[in-house]
Structure formats: C-alpha cells, structure tokens
C-alpha cells in the first residue's frame, strides 16, 4: 500500500509541478493548429489581489478612482456620437437617433449581429470606427450574448478592459444588456470595470420590457421606453452628461449613418 501511495504522490507531485512550471514559463506550445493552453497555477498563487482575475461570483473591490461618482456639469455642445455594439443597437437606434436629431447631435450607428465583448475585444473594429467617424461621445451596448457564460470574469474581463482601452479618453456610456433572465455576472463585471457613471444598468426591478418572439430583444415600443430611460440617465446621472432633451413621445428617426456587420461564422 505504502509503495502505491508513494507512486500516486510522485505522479501528483511531478504532474502538478510540470503544469506549474509550464504556467510560469514563456514557452508557447502548439499541437498542429491547436495552442496548448496554460493553467492558472501561476496566477492563482502569485497574482496580487489587484491583478488577480476574480473567482466566479466574487465581488471585486473597485479601484479608488472608480468609486467616486462626481457630479459633472452638462456638456451642452453638439456631439458626434458613435453608437456601437450588438443587435441591441438595432433596437435602440431609431429612438436614439430621434434624440440626436432633436438635440443637434450627429449619430453613427454600428450594429454587429451576434457580437460580444470577446469579438470586439479581440479585434480593432471599435478603434477603426473611432478613427473613421471621429466621435466625441460613444455609446456602446454589449453583453446580451454573454448573459449565461460561466466563469465570466476569467473569460471576459480582459476583453472588457481592451474595449475600454480602445475608447481611450473619449467619454462613453456602456449600456448594459436588458436581461430576460439573471445573468452569470456580465453586468457586475462591466459596471465594476468602467469608471463610475459610465454604465447604465438595464436590468433593474423597475424596468420591464416586452420582448419580441425570440424572447430576448425588446419590442419596438419597449425599445423606445428603454431608450428614453437611458437618455434621461445620461443627461442627469452619468459621468458625462450631454444634452438629450426628449423628442415627442414615440418619435423615431434615422441615424446619420448606419452600418450593419454580419455575424462571424
């Protein structure tokens, strides 16, 4: 028995040692086209709390700079708005365009169907559109396709950080997905990643949106309500308030330019 236990311990020790050493090394291995992934041993043991990817369900304390929500003055100048994200942009842009028209803003809308933080975070699409339209205000809505991803922080935090990085110093508001069920943490993760006042939570008990047949996207009438709430929030509570006086009830409009990106296969 003791010999067998010794052998099992040796197997575990050598095996775990190999994985630990591999996770610390800079060597990238490939088997054909497949990358040999590294475990999180290194990070689990040595990452400090500030740099550690949170465990599922773990509440991460915000950096001090993000905790303070300062009451900002409204910027009354006319803006060039880039409204970009997943198919939820399609729900919102008709009403948002009406807001832009009423308040003299220019609005460029980019709908990338079936997109996610991962898709935007691994490409320069957002950066390219910033370069193309030169916005001074960004509205982004992403997360609807990632409501039920497990271990969301481990899988998506880096992409959310990358998206925020791509927006640079341009004032932005991240519009959270209008959940139709509880998520696995995407809303928490985004709200904790952006500066205070830059995230609009679309999933609160007082927000109810009727859904289209797919059960996910809000119907046109509900999308108008949703947009109204977002615009009111941006103007009164966000970190970068801009003028968004409400157009007549139910009025919609076309954006300055609309680009539709097909889903990735």
């Amino acid at each position: 028995m003791k010999k067998a236990y010794f052998a099992i311990c040796a197997i575990l020790l050598v095996g775990l040692g190999v994985f630990y050493a591999f996770s610390r090394s800079d060597i990238d291995l490939k088997l054909g086209e497949t990358e040999i992934k590294k475990g999180t041993f290194q990070e689990t043991l040595f990452a400090s709390d500030q740099h550690r990817v949170a465990k599922p369900g773990e509440k991460v304390p915000l950096p001090l700079s993000k905790k303070k929500s300062e009451k900002a003055e409204m910027d009354t100048t006319k803006k060039t708005i880039l409204f970009i994200g997943d198919s939820m942009v399609e729900c919102l842009f008709p009403r948002m365009s009406a807001y832009a028209k009423k308040n003299g803003h220019t609005i460029y809308c980019v709908v990338w169907y079936s997109s996610s933080t991962e898709i935007y975070g691994t490409r320069t699409t957002l950066k390219d559109y910033i370069k193309k339209f030169k916005p001074d205000y960004i509205l982004i809505t992403l997360g609807g396709n990632e409501l039920f991803i497990r271990d969301i922080r481990q899988k998506r935090q880096k992409y959310v950080d990358e998206i925020i990085k791509q927006m640079g110093n341009i004032p932005f508001v991240w519009i959270g997905p209008p959940n139709w069920k509880d998520d696995t943490g995407i809303n928490d993760m985004i709200s904790e990643s952006v500066p205070a006042g830059c995230f609009y939570l679309s999933y609160t008990p007082d927000q109810h949106y009727d859904r289209k047949k797919d059960g996910a996207h809000p119907k046109a009438s509900s999308s108008i309500l949703w947009a109204d709430r977002i615009c009111k929030w941006i103007m009164t509570k966000s970190a970068h308030p801009i003028r968004l006086e409400a157009p007549p009830a139910g009025e919609t409009a076309r954006p300055t330019k609309l680009e539709l990106l097909q889903p990735l296969r």
């Binding site: 475990g39 169907y113 396709n145 889903p263 296969r265």
Partner: peptide, 14 residues
C-alpha cells in the same frame, strides 16, 4: 485545461 476555456458558439449564424 484546454476544454475549460473552450466555448460553445451561443447562437447559430443570423
């Protein structure tokens, strides 16, 4: 380790 970071395509094309 390989499969823990693999993800299933959530929605079919379109």
């Amino acid at each position: 380790i390989q499969f823990s970071s693999e993800e299933v395509q959530p929605f079919i094309y379109n």
